[in-house]
Design a binder for these strands. Structure first.
Lengths: 335, 335
DNA sequence: TCACCAAGCTAACACGCGTTAGTACCGCGG
DNA sequence: CCGCGGTACTAACGCGTGTTAGCTTGGTGA
C-alpha cells in the first residue's frame, strides 16, 4: 500500500568493468562483439560472467544519445474507436516483431496538437501512422526521423504498406460475390467511419475492382450503429438500388449492422442479401448466420511492415511486397 | 519510392543559445522556468523567440540520461488474443491521458523471455502489466522502475487498479440477474481464457458476491469458440446444473458464444437462460437478441490508472479509488 | 574608498554509452 | 640491438541535457 520508491540503482557498464577488473571500453567491446578487436578468451569470460551476475542491461537512452537516434518506433493509433480486435491483433504482432528486430514500439493516440511535441518525447527512429498529411511527413523527415510510413495516406510509403493489400481485399470480396452470382454490389460502413481515409481508400479500390471486371460501380451503404436505424437505411438503400444483391462490409461491425437490419426487415442472408465482411473476428464467427469474411493475414502484414521499417532505419532499400498477398476468404453462411 | 535518409539534424539547446546570444545554461533556465533563478525579461524574450524559430524540442533521451529514468510507461499487453474492443478503448484513453501527464506509453507484448532485456530497452519510469508475478515486480523495483502496477495480479498495486473494479462488475452482474429472479448463476468464458488471471480473478469475485448475498456459488461454464461445441458444452452444463437460469459472461465473445449455442439448441434468451456480459461493444448491441452488458467506464478507469502511476513516478502517495465505481448496466434484451 | 549584496549570467560537471586514437607488451627477422 | 607488426587492452571524447558553483557588474551602506 506504500508508494515507496526503490533506491536501487541499475548496474552500468562501469559496474561490470569494475567487477571484471577491466576497463569500460573492454566491456563494451565484449558485449557488442565489436569486430577488428581482439579480446582474450579469459577476459571475455570474466566480462560475461560479471555482466550476468549484475543482470546488466545497457541503457537505451545513453545508446540513443550517442548514436543520434533511438530504436523506438512511434505508432500513431487510428482515429478514436477503431482500435478493434483485428487492429489489436496486428499491433500485438507488430510489438513482438519489432522486439525481435531490436526496436521498441511507442504508441500515441492521434491528436491534432502540434506534432513536434509528440515525437520530441521519444526521438523515434521511425513513425508509423494510420493516415498522414504530406507536410507532417516532411516535417518529421526534417527532424531526423529516418522512416516515415503511413498505412493509408497519399505518401508513397503508404501504398507500399496497405495499398496493394486493400486491393487484394477488394479483389477477394468481389471474387467471392461474383462467383455466387452477385453482380450489383454495395459497400457497407457504419458510424462516422465513412469519412476516414481507410474506408474512402477501400471504397475506391472496390470501385476499381468492379470496373476492371466490367461490373457496375458499387453503391455506398451508410449505416448508423443502432439496430433500428440500420433497418431503415437498408430499406431505402434497397429502394434506390433494387438490383443490388451483395454487399461488401467494411469490417465486422458493419457486417453485423447489415445483419441486424436485415433481421428486423425479415430478410435472410444470403437469400435476400449476401454479405462479405473484412477482418475476421470471433464475433463474426458467432453471428447468425455465421459471416463469410475476408481474413487479413496479420502475420504477413505485420512482418512486411516491420521489414520496411527496419530497412528504412538502416538506410537500406525497402523490400518489395511479398508474393503471398495475405488476404483470404473464410467461407461461412452469409454468401 | 526512395529510402533516402534525411541528413537534417534537429536543433539542440546549443543552437538556441547561439541564436539568442546567450549560454546554454540560460536557455535551460528559461525553458524550464527554473525557480531561484533571475532572468531579465529581454533575455527571456530572445531565448523564447530563438527556440520557437528553430522549432526546438528537448531530447527525451538526454533528459532521461541525466535524470536517471525516462518518462515512458511500459505497458505489457494482455495475453495474445485478448486485446478486444473495450481493452482497446482503455488503451486509447491511456495514451491520451499519459500524454497530457507528460509521459509516453510504450507497448510490449507479453512474452516469457527474460524480462530484463525488455525493460532495458526503455528504462521505464513505470510498468503497467496485465498480470505480474511477485518476483518480476520485485526485480523491476530493484532495477530502478519507480512504479510497478499490475491489473490483476497479487501485487498490492493490482488491487488498487482492478480489484475493486472487478468487484463492482461482479456486483452489477449479480444484482441485475437477481432482480430478474435468477438465483442459480453461471460464469461463462471461452477458449483458453479460463486459465488467465483475469477470469480467475473475476470468477473469484463473482463467488464472493454470490455468497455474500446468500446465493449458491456460481458454476463455471467453459465454452469452445466454435458454435457447434458451444451447444454441446451448454447442454451438458445445463444437465449438471439444472437449476441455473442466469449466466455472467466474461466478455462479449463469451456472451456471443452462449447465444450461439442457445440458438442451436432452440433456446431463447432470456426465457431459457438470461445473459449479462461484461465490457459493452458494438457487436453486443447488434446481437440477436441485443445483449445486456456491464459497461466499464473506460474514462474513469483510465484516469485512475494514470493518476496512480503519475503519483508513483513522482514519489507521492497514490490516490484512493474514485467514488464513482465506473461499472454500470446497459439494459437490452438478454435478461 | 571599501566591503557587501543581489541580479544576471556562464563554466563545468555528471549521466551511460559507443568509438577513435592511442599505449604497453611480446615475438621475430635483420 | 633495432625496427616492425600483431595482440590485448585503455584513456579520452562526444552525444544533449539538467544542475551546481562561481563569476562579473552595478548599486548601496559605512
Amino acid at each position: 500500500m506504500d508508494g515507496r520508491v526503490s533506491t536501487a540503482r541499475r548496474a552500468t557498464s562501469a559496474d561490470v568493468a569494475r567487477l571484471a577488473g577491466v576497463s569500460r571500453t573492454t566491456v563494451s567491446f565484449v558485449l557488442n562483439d565489436t569486430p577488428e578487436q581482439s579480446i582474450s578468451a579469459e577476459t571475455r569470460r570474466r566480462v560475461l560472467a560479471a555482466a550476468r551476475e549484475l543482470a546488466y542491461a545497457p541503457s537505451a537512452e545513453a545508446r540513443a544519445l550517442g548514436r543520434g537516434h533511438s530504436t523506438s518506433v512511434l505508432l500513431y493509433l487510428p482515429p478514436a474507436g477503431s482500435l478493434t480486435e483485428d487492429i489489436g491483433d496486428i499491433i500485438e504482432r507488430l510489438s513482438v516483431l519489432f522486439d525481435e528486430a531490436g526496436l521498441s514500439m511507442v504508441i500515441h493516440a492521434w491528436t491534432r496538437r502540434p506534432a513536434a511535441q509528440v515525437w520530441s518525447s521519444v526521438t523515434p527512429a521511425a513513425v508509423l501512422a494510420w493516415d498522414l498529411e504530406d507536410d507532417d511527413a516532411e516535417r518529421m523527415r526534417r527532424n531526423g526521423v529516418r522512416g516515415v510510413v503511413s498505412w493509408t495516406g497519399s505518401d508513397v510509403m503508404g501504398r507500399w504498406i496497405t495499398g496493394p493489400r486493400e486491393q487484394d481485399i477488394a479483389g477477394v470480396q468481389v471474387q467471392r460475390l461474383t462467383s455466387a452470382g452477385h453482380t450489383h454490389l454495395g459497400y457497407a460502413v457504419t458510424g462516422g467511419d465513412h469519412m476516414h481515409g481507410v474506408s474512402q481508400w477501400r471504397f475506391e479500390m472496390l470501385r476499381r475492382e468492379c470496373t476492371s471486371r466490367g461490373l457496375p460501380a458499387p453503391r455506398m451503404l451508410h449505416l448508423p450503429a443502432e439496430p433500428g436505424g440500420a433497418a431503415a437505411a437498408l430499406s431505402t438503400w434497397r429502394a434506390e438500388n433494387p438490383a443490388a444483391s451483395g454487399v461488401c462490409a467494411h469490417d465486422t461491425t458493419a457486417a453485423l449492422a447489415v445483419l441486424s437490419g436485415m433481421r428486423q426487415l425479415g430478410w435472410a442472408a444470403p437469400r435476400d442479401l449476401a454479405i462479405v465482411g473484412v477482418n475476421d473476428s470471433r464475433a463474426a464467427a458467432l453471428a447468425d448466420p455465421p459471416l463469410t469474411m475476408v481474413a487479413l493475414d496479420t502475420d504477413v502484414t505485420a512482418r512486411y511492415i516491420v521489414a520496411v521499417i527496419t530497412a528504412l532505419v538502416q538506410g537500406a532499400p525497402a523490400p518489395r511486397l511479398p508474393a503471398t498477398a495475405g488476404a483470404s476468404i473464410v467461407d461461412r453462411d452469409s454468401v
